[in-house]
């Protein structure tokens, strides 16, 4: 057991608050994504509260771990977790997608300190992460680079260009976490884990990463215990100096009965009633949510 009971309960409380704030923020701005941020909540919280060597007061600290949200449309999830972690006030979430905001629809590193790259056009984050990891080796720095990928976006060929080169340079300081939530924006007709076919169907991403020479760890991406132990293993580096891929099995729209496994919630604006239903489903009272 990595986590004491109290610590686990605290992370679970943060997860509920994050889920509610994601919905509330998208509701307020009238635009944004829901399904993808919800599936990544536990991963983001684990990274920002437990795993990464970071200091919210010094977002440009040279020796910090680097984090790249390759699936940039999950920006609202990242912003929520960063706010809760102390990078900026929770109240700033209300500016999401509004004019002059630091919280752009997709992460913009030129506006918000604490972002290590901009993202939005899919499938590009692993390459930037590879640059950081390669640079760390050249500069003899010991920080780790974490890249959060979506299972839909790894249909982009550029991801596999990066996977090949990362393996060739034996970058054991690079970890890709795949938010394997089983749905993409539209995808193929039929049923998989969600209400459309799985982005990879009969070809599991774990096998592809393995074929590219990565160490693969498969976990339940909503279980803090499993996320933390996988990240601990990843940070120590693979014995054969390989990069690590953590395949986190998740549920798109996780946590709310009306969003789980439904592709239509990829980007859909929740109504006031949806917010009420969310509070009930999460067992939260509005007064427990930071403003």
């Amino acid at each position: 057991m990595i986590l004491e009971t109290d610590a686990r309960k605290e992370l679970e409380r943060l997860a509920k608050i994050t889920r509610y704030l994601i919905l509330k923020t998208v509701h307020q701005s009238g635009a944004g994504h829901v399904g993808g941020p919800l599936s990544a909540v536990e991963i983001l919280i684990a990274l920002f509260f437990k795993v990464m060597r970071i200091d919210p007061k010094r977002p440009d600290w040279d020796d910090r771990d680097r984090f790249i949200l390759s699936k940039g449309h999950a920006a609202v999830g990242l912003y929520t977790v960063m706010a809760l972690r102390g990078y900026f006030p929770v109240s700033e979430l209300a500016t999401f997608d509004k004019g002059n905001s630091r919280l752009q629809g997709h992460p913009d590193m030129t506006r918000l300190p604490g972002l290590d790259i901009s993202s939005g056009s899919l499938g590009q984050g692993l390459s930037a992460g590879l640059g950081y990891a390669l640079g760390a080796k050249l500069a003899k720095k010991d920080f780790h680079t974490w890249v959060l990928l979506g299972d839909g976006e790894i249909q982009e060929g550029m991801v596999w260009e990066a996977a090949h080169v990362a393996s060739r340079y034996r970058l054991d300081n690079l970890t890709a976490i795949l938010d394997d939530n089983g749905l993409q924006q539209y995808g193929w007709r039929g049923k998989g884990r969600g209400d459309r076919r799985d982005p990879w169907d009969a070809l599991p991403p774990a096998r592809i990463f393995e074929a590219f020479g990565w160490r693969v760890i498969e976990i339940d991406g909503h279980d803090f215990e499993q996320i933390l132990s996988a990240c601990e293993i990843a940070r120590k580096g693979a014995p054969a100096e390989r990069p690590t891929a953590i395949i986190a099995h998740t549920v798109k729209g996780k946590g709310l009965p009306f969003t789980e496994g439904k592709h239509a919630w990829h980007s859909k604006v929740p109504s006031s009633e949806d917010l009420q239903r969310a509070l009930e489903a999460l067992g939260l009272d509005e007064s427990e949510v930071p403003r």
Partner: peptide, 17 residues
């Protein structure tokens, strides 16, 4: 290697370091 998209991304990461 013969993978220019990745090369641009790697360059960005290196530049930001």
């Amino acid at each position: 290697g013969i993978a220019e998209q990745n090369m641009l991304g790697v360059a960005a990461g290196l530049a930001h370091l």
